[in-house]
Write a protein that binds this DNA or RNA. Structure first.
Lengths: 212, 212
DNA sequence: TTGACATTCAAACAACTGTTTTATACATAT
DNA sequence: ATATGTATAAAACAGTTGTTTGAATGTCAA
C-alpha cells in the first residue's frame, strides 16, 4: 500500500522533536508551531496524526519514554546475570549504574529523567499509564529481588521505600543538575557523574542495610 | 501618607495567589488574568506593581519562598539547641523532620517544595538568587555541623553530596506524592508522612555513616 | 485512466496571551 | 482649592495559542 520513502516519517519526526521540546520546556512551554517547525512538518500535522497536542504528549511517553525505560531495565537485568549469587551490594550498584549511566546517551538520559520529573511534579494522563505499565511492575520485580537479601523482619513497604529512595537521588542528581553544580561549584562532566553514581550506590547500600 | 485600609493589600494578595498558582501549574501554565482574578484585582495590577509577569514570579520567591525557607532552617536550628552534645543521628533526624513536617502547614510545604522542584527542573533567574541567598549558606552551615561527626577522612564533597541526598528524598517523597501513593497504593495522610520521615532519617543515618 | 485514500499545505478561525493606554477615583499635602 | 501621588478600572493593543478548513498534492489498486 504505502511505499514512498517519506511516508510515515513525519509522525516519527514529530514524536522525536516533541519529546526533546517537551522535556526542555514542558507541555505548556512549547507551542505546536514550534514542534512542527522543528520536525519540518506543516502546522496541521500534529492534529492530523494525533488529534490534538495533548494526545501527542501522551504518545511521546508511550512511543519514546516507555521503550527507553525498558532498555534501562534490560540493562539492569543483564548486569545481574552471572554465575555468582546475587548480593545486596551488587543489585544496588547495578541499579544506580543502570539509571545514572546505563544504555542511554547522556542526552537521552537527561530527557528521560526530565520528562519523568515533570510528570511527577504535575501528573497528567501519561503518569497513569507509566505507573501501570512501567513503574509498578519494575518496583515489584526489584523488591522481589531484594526481599530475600534484606535484613529479616523488614517491612514490605520499607523495602519499597528503600528502592524509591534510590530513585529519588538518581532523579535529583540528574534533573537537578543545575542546582547540583551550582552548589558543588563544578562542571557536570563524566568525572562528576562517576562520582555521583558511586556516592549513590555507597549511600544506598548502607542505607538499605541500616533499615533493620 | 497612606492610611486607607485596602492600600497595599492588592500587592500582597497578588503574591499570595501567584505563589499558589505558580506552584500548581508552573510559570507558563498560569495567565496573568488567572492570577488577578484569583486575587480580586484588575488585570493591569500585575504590571502596575511588578512591571511584568516574570518579575512577579521572581518576587514570589523573594517575598514568600525565602521567608518560608528561613522558618524551616530556624526550626531545624531550634531542634538542635539543647544541653546534650550533637550526634549525627540527632542532626539528620532533625533535618529531615524540619523539611518533612516542620513549621509549615501541609499546604505550605507542598507549595514550597513544588516551587523548588520546578526551579530545579527548569531554572530561571529565581534559582540564581535562591542558590546565593539560601541554598549555599544552608548547605555550608550543615556541612560545618556534620564535619566533626562524620567518619574521618571523609571527602568534603562527599559530605555535601550526603546532605543533598537527604534533600533528594525529601523533595521526591513530597512533590512526587502522586507517584509515591500510586506505587504504594495508599493515601498520603499523616501516618504515611510520619512513616516517610522515619524512613528517610533511618536510611540517611546509615547512608551517611557508610560513606567511609 | 479512474476512483479512493493518505498526506501536505497555506490560510483562516476564535480564543487567549502579556502589556499598554486612558480615564477615574481618592486621600493627602501645600 | 489646588496640585500630587497612589490606586483601581475598562478597554484596546498586537501577537500567539490550539485547532479547523478546503484545496492541492502524491500514491496506490482496480
Amino acid at each position: 500500500m504505502r511505499e514512498k520513502g517519506v511516508r510515515g516519517e513525519s509522525k516519527e519526526r514529530l514524536l522525536d522533536q516533541a519529546e526533546v521540546l517537551f522535556a526542555q520546556k514542558g507541555f505548556e512551554g512549547v507551542s505546536v508551531r514550534e514542534i512542527t517547525r522543528a520536525a519540518g512538518c506543516n502546522l496541521a500535522s500534529v492534529n492530523y496524526y494525533f488529534g490534538n497536542k495533548e494526545n501527542l504528549y501522551v504518545e511521546v511517553f508511550q512511543a519514546r519514554w516507555v521503550p527507553r525505560a525498558r532498555r534501562i531495565h534490560d540493562d539492569f537485568r543483564q548486569a545481574l546475570k552471572g554465575p555468582e549469587p546475587l548480593s545486596l551490594s551488587h543489585i544496588i550498584q547495578s541499579l544506580s549504574l543502570a539509571f545514572l549511566k546505563g544504555p542511554l546517551s547522556e542526552e537521552e538520559r537527561r530527557r528521560h529523567h526530565q520528562l519523568m520529573a515533570r510528570e511527577m511534579a504535575q501528573p497528567t494522563a501519561a503518569l497513569e499509564m507509566l505507573a501501570e505499565q512501567i513503574m509498578r511492575p519494575f518496583f515489584r520485580e526489584l523488591t522481589d529481588m531484594l526481599r530475600p537479601l534484606a535484613p529479616e523482619g523488614l517491612d514490605e513497604r520499607e523495602l519499597m521505600l528503600g528502592a524509591m529512595g534510590i530513585f529519588a537521588m538518581v532523579l535529583y542528581f540528574s534533573f537537578g543538575r543545575v542546582a547540583v553544580t551550582r552548589l558543588l561549584g563544578c562542571e557536570y562532566d563524566d568525572a562528576l557523574r562517576k562520582r555521583l553514581s558511586e556516592h549513590i550506590a555507597g549511600f544506598s547500600i548502607s542505607g538499605l542495610e541500616g533499615l533493620k
